[in-house]
């Protein structure tokens, strides 16, 4: 996750793009020729105001309390349509359908109040070969009155798409979310079938693999699967009252959480924060590993 040295062209949007339309276009154009390099573009949304109604709905779906401070995962929802705007276009080297969210890192610099006007910027970086395909990072930067308050890195994997041989570094690939959360489960969650639809409604992520089992089957899943970002949010909500003001939460998404299912949360408190593991109720299928460290 090195900083991009090149200067990006800013595209300032008047309003958040409509996700349904972007998906439809991405589907239609998925087999057409694409750009080989990442777009040197930064998509920007200025003067973003959080709607309390929306925040309340998001909090309810993810298990957060409705407070004046935004949950750590909420700004991701603000940046997500901008990510889609970049990725749905043919100027993006990887086709949107089939991209898998494999890792997500969020840095909360300080609590962000819902009533602060925010600027949200998204760009893509680090297109790289991976043993299973090709990876790319979508970076969301959120500022309040020019002050950087929140950064999110979403790593997407295009399975089976090759852009060359991965270097040794990339094969080893640092995984900060090492599984250190053992022991007994601290919570058992019954995740209902509707979770995908409910999270789609508050996040705008209407990827059909989360919405209905037939679409999921088309992509090789036996049933619809939960959004990774829902699972991440739900894990953070479990730490209500225990998180510092500034922290990093680094999550790697492992095996999909099929809907409905019963999941177990394991956590361990470390010298430098928390480790969490979300896994299937029985067996050792891991859905998510998380490392939370103070900044």
């Amino acid at each position: 996750m090195t900083a991009t040295a090149e200067v990006l062209d800013q595209v300032v949007l008047a309003e958040p793009p409509r996700l349904g339309r972007l998906y439809a276009r991405a589907m239609a154009e998925s087999r057409m020729p694409r750009s080989a390099a990442l777009p040197a573009t930064e998509v920007v949304l200025d003067d973003v105001h959080v709607d309390v109604e929306h925040l309340a709905a998001y909090d309810e779906v993810c298990g957060f309390r409705l407070t004046d401070a935004l949950p750590a995962t909420y700004p991701h929802v603000l940046g997500f349509p901008l990510q889609m705007q970049l990725m749905a276009s043919r100027t993006f080297p990887l086709a949107l359908p089939g991209l898998v969210h494999v890792r997500n890192t969020i840095d909360v610099e300080r609590p962000v109040r819902w009533d602060e006007p925010l600027q949200v910027r998204v760009h893509a970086e680090e297109l790289r070969a991976h043993p299973k395909g090709t990876q790319v990072d979508l970076v969301t930067d959120v500022t309040a009155s020019g002050e950087p308050v929140w950064t999110g890195h979403s790593t997407y994997l295009a399975r089976g798409v090759s852009i060359g041989t991965p270097s040794d570094d990339e094969v080893v690939g640092p995984d900060p979310a090492v599984d250190e959360a053992g022991g007994r489960a601290s919570a058992v969650w019954r995740v209902p079938k509707e979770t995908g639809r409910r999270y789609a409604a508050v996040s705008g992520d209407v990827n059909p693999i989360h919405l209905n089992p037939w679409a999921a089957k088309a992509f090789g899943f036996p049933r619809a699967i939960a959004h990774g970002m829902w699972a991440k949010a739900r894990c953070l909500a479990a730490l209500e009252g225990r998180l510092p003001d500034a922290f990093r939460v680094d999550v790697s998404f492992r095996k999909p959480l099929l809907l409905p299912s019963t999941a177990e949360l394991r956590e361990s408190r470390q010298d430098d924060g928390w480790r969490m593991r979300l896994s299937a109720r029985r067996g050792d299928l891991t859905h998510l590993l998380a490392a939370i460290t103070p900044l």
Binding site: E53, R65, L66, T67
Partner: peptide, 9 residues
């Protein structure tokens, strides 16, 4: 949209 628990916490 705030629950009792939201407000009390």
């Amino acid at each position: 949209r705030a629950s009792n628990q939201d407000m009390l916490t």
